[in-house]
Design a protein around this nucleic acid. Sequence first.
DNA 1: CCTACCGATCGGTAGG
DNA 2: CCTACCGATCGGTAGG
Lengths: 226, 226
Amino acid sequence: MSLDLPPPAAALTAASPPRSRGRPRKAADTRDDGNRRQDLIRHAARLFRKRGFDSTSTRDIAAAVGMQSGSPFYHFKSKGELLGAVMQEGMQSAIARQAQALERVGAAATPREQLRTLVRNHFDILLGRDSDFIPVMLYEARSLTAAQRRELADLQARYEAAWLPVLAALHARGALRADVKLARLLMFGALNWSVQWFRARQGATLDELTQAALDLFLGPDNKGKA
Amino acid sequence: MSLDLPPPAAALTAASPPRSRGRPRKAADTRDDGNRRQDLIRHAARLFRKRGFDSTSTRDIAAAVGMQSGSPFYHFKSKGELLGAVMQEGMQSAIARQAQALERVGAAATPREQLRTLVRNHFDILLGRDSDFIPVMLYEARSLTAAQRRELADLQARYEAAWLPVLAALHARGALRADVKLARLLMFGALNWSVQWFRARQGATLDELTQAALDLFLGPDNKGKA
DNA sequence: CCTACCGATCGGTAGG
DNA sequence: CCTACCGATCGGTAGG
């Protein structure tokens, strides 16, 4: 599948440093194998989000990481595989962060607090630091092949799985009135659409957003403070 | 701005009918001026929705209406203007349909019934018959120029204006707990995202969707039937 | 609205 | 990972 050649140590910036002469150093334990690949994924995510998959050329991406136009294809078989890598990495990170957030709040928390945790974490993934991967996944899915979509489906199902028991518990105690399945779809829409209008450093904070979403989705909290 | 030549009467289909010979009939009062232009807008909307703006070529659109590759540019100065026309037409139609729906339900209706009308109409515009225009506007806005965006902003503001007093009334009587401004953004997201997952002829109907949305957004209806 | 075309861009590749 | 390139596609235009 992938090429066998290890990537040569590359240090190419605006003012290129003097080329090392003589015999290249032997393959050390710390070869920067994945660094360039990661650079490509990260910059591709940023450009795909900003301009869309179709409007971003592989040349744009190469230039962003300081490569020549053909070089991304040393790391990825095609532009589409680079898109798939962005989404895969985004979902894996999202799942990990979601698990950590739930662990932090604890299993003894009320369903309401668990939902707050999920919503707050979701906003962070969509709008916080390094938040290009999931928006790309949400808004550029059309450019995936059927096979790529299948590969992602499993990760997405894992991410969504954490929501259903929380919503079911809220439904059982009357805090969530709508059908659980439709409620999840509508709620995800409310959150995911924030990518279109939220601007950091202007308007609401992520905490305020989270509060507004909970206020909208759940009736008043009739067991505790006002 | 636009060319002065009236478009010749064109009747080109798969099996082209015999060409009319002799002198073309004189310019009648009913010249099919706008028909071809409308055809282009309608088919462009369908293709833009299905494949996206960037992945749809002007050749695709021309072929869909039975034209040659260069002919769309007789009707539109550029591909981007065709996109703008799709969105303009979509918004004008949406505003008209929303006004009719509100008229039908009547000003004496409760805020809850007015919101139901707005939501149901919005779903119809997004997911019902001839529902390509607004999804294109929602999901291809990135391809617009700044000038086009400004032209659309006025229409969008008019469409949104109908929602705010209804939401304010619901907020005033405690049925809507969240901040009105954020609530509108979150609600629009919940509705607009349905474009991504709703499949007609499978799953819920638009009426069921509307009910679920109202259940989610508003507390229980504590003045009337259960 | 068609015919015939241009210039630019793009994804991708061979060969080192 | 770079160099040098290819073939295809695309938006758009002149001229009728």
